[in-house]
Design a protein around this nucleic acid. Structure first.
Length: 494
RNA sequence: GGCGACGUACCCAAGUGGCUAAGGGAGAGGUCUGCAAAACCUCGAUUCAGCGGUUCGAAUCCGCUCGUCGCCUCCA
């Protein structure tokens, strides 16, 4: 299995530190607002990575943190007139609401920064003792900064040179720092801010130190995979490396994995540009699975352009998948009727082709996923198999051998689905859920009643009446499908 | 200014040295159907931003040009 490592800029063979098990640390979110689709991408990508590694037989310990103390949280609390921890709690709860819908599983450990203050203080104290960090008095309290010049490898992840950073620096020169690139490990408390007791008086942790303390506590001093959005490469991950490796004297993470951005009109979606969509805004119009498929339809490192067209494409793909699943179920649930069995045998050719496709599928799926988690390719394979299955079902198959073959196809799809955590509903659920997400003013019972009405019209050969029912439903977004033993319905994808 | 990424059909998107350049959506034609829908079949890039070079062979490697974007400040 190969993973692209930001540190080396290359795909590398994945070899975990310990045999048969692996640890992943992914930087989560700062909880001061609702999550946008960019947060969703990161969460979904690492969710799939975790699931795939488990599928490969590794015991995975996945750690994803919440940053629950930070300037933005404090500011938000002031704006809303509530306590900072109430803000954090609220948005952690909202995070779960969104992510649960998107099929993002819980991490094995979900540490919060404020639960690890003693650990952070421990790391910072050691860094001061070792001479990597220095204290600066601010009133009665002190701040602590990391001295980047003491860590010669500073810049190795983001490929930056300290000299270049300084010449191009847009940061305000801070008199208290020895070097403008030095960053805060511990911030002296200001009036009205939350604080904790420390060897430096009252204060609170800097942003980067929490990940060092929590990753080391929960995964050890050297970990296999550390990841997050590409915007964390600098300075966040660079700083984590500096402080962690200075602290332990060992390498911090073997593979650095970063997901690409979501763009709007080719521009990075970001809070400051205001060009972002929250997950729940999108969920007003689309089923959550649409978002998940949209994300996984591109390689995780590529930028994805966000648009309604893209979401509609993903929706159509899902509908295609569930339609096939429906055909599979229908085929399997019908007992074989003798007349049909006598009629003609399933084309041996299509059966052979489906069998061949199934034989190849698992290997091809894993090959794609083994190649730096290429979910776009893996999904391409899924839809190729879907077409093969449809072809086979079109050939009017019958007999136990056919059933076994279709059973096998169903199982094969199911295995792939569970790794991606997609396509897990029944076609019925998919369609009833679409009634809600598409805001169709009909219930399942309404539709079934209409189908009955139309059925009696059809029995009377009153085609005009039957067609008017079809038309009426279609105008509301419901398509009817006549099959040999009844009429089914589905939500029209426009 | 420094560093980096990307440019594949109408749209999205795989493919990074060699079998017919995956897959999805849209489109055209056909099969099926009371009419439909779904599904399937056929068609659709002699070509991978442009120009040079390396090679028996390149979308894939190298160079240049053009274009787009990102990081260098909080950011998934």
């Amino acid at each position: 299995m190969k993973i692209f490592n930001t540190m080396t800029g290359r795909k590398e063979d994945f070899i975990p530190i310990a045999k048969d098990k692996t640890g992943i640390y992914a930087c989560g979110v700062t909880v001061y607002d609702y999550c946008h689709i960019g947060h969703a991408r990161s969460a979904v990508v690492f969710d799939v990575i975790k699931r795939y590694l488990k599928h490969k037989g590794l015991a995975v310990k996945y750690v994803r943190n919440f940053t629950d103390i930070d300037d933005k949280i404090i500011r938000r609390a002031h704006e809303e007139g509530v306590s900072w921890d109430a803000v954090a709690k609220k948005y952690i709860d909202e995070y779960y609401v969104d992510m649960d819908k998107l099929g993002v599983g819980r991490a094995d450990v979900e540490p919060k920064a404020t639960d690890h203050i003693p650990e952070m203080i421990g790391v910072i104290s050691t860094l001061v003792e070792k001479g990597y960090a220095y204290e600066v008095a601010e009133g009665d309290n002190k701040s602590v900064y990391f001295s980047v010049e003491k860590f010669p490898e500073y810049g190795k992840l983001s490929k930056k040179d300290l000299k270049d950073l300084l010449s191009g620096a847009r940061v305000d020169v801070d008199e208290r720092k020895k070097n403008p690139m030095d960053f805060a490990l511990w911030k002296a408390s200001k009036e009205g801010e939350p604080w904790w007791e420390s060897p430096w008086g009252k204060g609170r942790p800097g942003w980067h130190i929490e990940c060092t303390a929590m990753a080391i506590k929960h995964l050890g001093e050297s970990i296999d995979i550390h990841g997050g959005g590409a915007d964390l490469i600098f300075p966040h991950h660079e700083n984590e490396i500096a402080q962690s490796e200075a602290y332990t004297g060992k390498f911090f993470a073997r593979y650095w994995v970063h997901n690409g951005f979501i763009t709007i009109d080719k521009e990075k979606m970001s809070k400051s540009l205001g060009n972002f969509f929250t997950i729940r805004e999108i969920l007003e119009k689309y089923d959550p699975e649409v978002i998940r498929l949209f994300i996984l339809s591109s390689h995780y490192r590529s930028p994805i352009e966000f648009s309604n067209e893209q979401l509609r494409d993903a929706e159509s793909s899902l509908d295609r998948y569930y339609s096939t699943l429906d055909r599979i179920q229908e085929f399997l649930s019908h007992s074989l009727d003798i007349a049909q069995a006598k009629a003609k045998k399933a084309s041996a050719q299509t059966a052979g082709e489906l069998e061949a496709a199934l034989d190849k599928f698992n290997d091809r799926f894993e090959e794609a996923m083994d190649d730096d988690f290429n979910t776009a390719m893996a999904l391409g394979n899924v839809f190729e198999l879907v077409r093969e299955i449809n072809r086979f079902l079109d050939s009017k198959p019958c007999g136990d051998t056919s059933k076994l073959l279709v059973e096998r196809a169903k199982d094969t799809l199911h295995t792939a689905s569970s790794i991606l955590n997609l396509f897990n509903r029944t076609p019925e659920q998919w369609n009833t859920d679409l009634l809600t997400s598409k805001r169709i003013p009909l219930t399942k019972a309404d539709i079934e009643q209409k189908i009955k009405d139309r059925q009696s019209a059809r029995q009377d050969k009153d085609w005009a009446l039957a067609d008017s029912v079809r038309k009426e439903l279609e105008e509301k977004g419901i398509l009817l499908e006549d099959k040999k033993d009844g009429t089914g319905w589905k939500v029209k994808i426009v």
